Computed example of a mutant assay.
Amino acid sequence: MSEPLVLVTQSGAVQTLALNRPAALNSLTAALHAQLLAALEATAAACDVRCVVITGMGRAFCAGQDLNDIAAAPASGSGDPAPAPGSAGAQAQDLGRVIETLYRPLCLRIRSMPVPVLAAVNGVAAGAGACLALGCDLVLAARSASFIMAFSKIGLLPDTGGTWLLPRLVGRAQALGLALLGDKLPAPEAERRGLIWRCVDDASLPDEALALAQRLAAMPVKALVATRQAMDAAAQLDYGQALAQEAAMQQTLGAGADYREGVAAFAGKRAPRFTER
């Protein structure tokens, strides 16, 4: 039996999902997509998980789409006969279909997880792999890691949420520079530009990622997820609408057990014990 393409481990309330195609730099295939999405769905349903870490096995986080996968193979030249509808060749030409059936569900699942999602970028994150990491709530990267918007190098535009994420993370000028030029961005520079949360020494990445995830898991995760949702939604709202959204969401959180526990712990000068998810 072949080894799983996603390795799932759990430490307390933290679950780690490790992309497991190290020989191919964890590049994405339809099979890897299916296993990662299934793992995320299972995690979302697991009441004992309060934070998720996504990382890669070996020397890369994720090199993006595996171009040897039939779904991403380029269309044949104009002089070649057109493939029959529904054939492998026809599917290979329709990258839009690949986005809709594989990438869009994965991106939306990460963005709608009921717990915080941390990317621990252990090596190169290129193309869709870079955008996959940036779509997580926090990105922690090894100092030797790098981010490459490699799409323009093969005649494509950023996908996996890249056109939405990049301008919001670093502004239009920096986003266009990264996307158009496709230059390698070392993790320390990515941190300096605000593309990621923080970079750490390579050897300490696993421990730092677990410590950060455990810290998030001990916090009121329902409020953390609501913060993500509010900030994402506020990007489409004016100031007054954002204030109204805050009031509505705060009303819900204020009626919850975690708010009562937080206030009681503050008054009692003790550490809170949050339980909602």
Rank of each mutant, 00 (worst) to 15 (best):
P220M: 06
A84Y: 09
A125M: 01
V225P: 02
A90R: 06
V14L: 07
A125Q: 01
A265I: 04
R192G: 02
D94M: 02
R193W: 08
L176E: 06
G194M: 07
A175R: 05
L176V: 11
G194A: 08
L156Y: 04
S87Q: 06
P22I: 04
V200P: 09
Q65P: 11
D69L: 06
A13L: 14
M149P: 13
G64Y: 00
S144N: 12
L25S: 06
A235F: 13
T160V: 09
D69P: 06
P167N: 09
P114S: 03
A264V: 09
S144Y: 12
R198K: 00
G56Y: 08
S152W: 13
A88R: 15
R172W: 15
L243R: 14
D202L: 03
L212T: 12
I196P: 01
S78Y: 09
E41M: 15
A244E: 06
P4Q: 07
D48C: 04
T160K: 03
G64H: 01
T163C: 14
G58I: 00
L106Q: 04
I154N: 11
R270H: 02
A46V: 05
D159M: 11
L169N: 11
V14D: 02
R192F: 05
Y239N: 15
G240H: 13
T163L: 15
G123P: 07
L5V: 00
S144R: 10
A244I: 15
L95R: 07
R228G: 02
P74G: 03
L32V: 02
A141S: 05
Q15V: 11
L67N: 06
C62L: 10
K153F: 12
R193K: 12
L180G: 10
A60T: 00
E261P: 10
G256P: 05
A271G: 10
R215Y: 12
T252C: 10
A264R: 04
F151H: 01
A45P: 13
L36M: 02
L118M: 03
E261C: 13
L7P: 08
M219A: 15
G240V: 11
R21G: 02
S204T: 13
R192P: 05
R97K: 14
T55H: 02
I154V: 10
F147Q: 11
G129Y: 00
K269V: 12
Q93T: 10
A234H: 10
L140N: 01
G64L: 00
A173S: 14
N68A: 15
D202R: 02
Q91Y: 10
L178M: 04
A92S: 15
T29N: 08
G96V: 14
D48K: 06
L169E: 14
S112P: 09
G79S: 06
G171I: 12
V49N: 12
C136L: 05
L5Y: 04
G155K: 08
V200H: 12
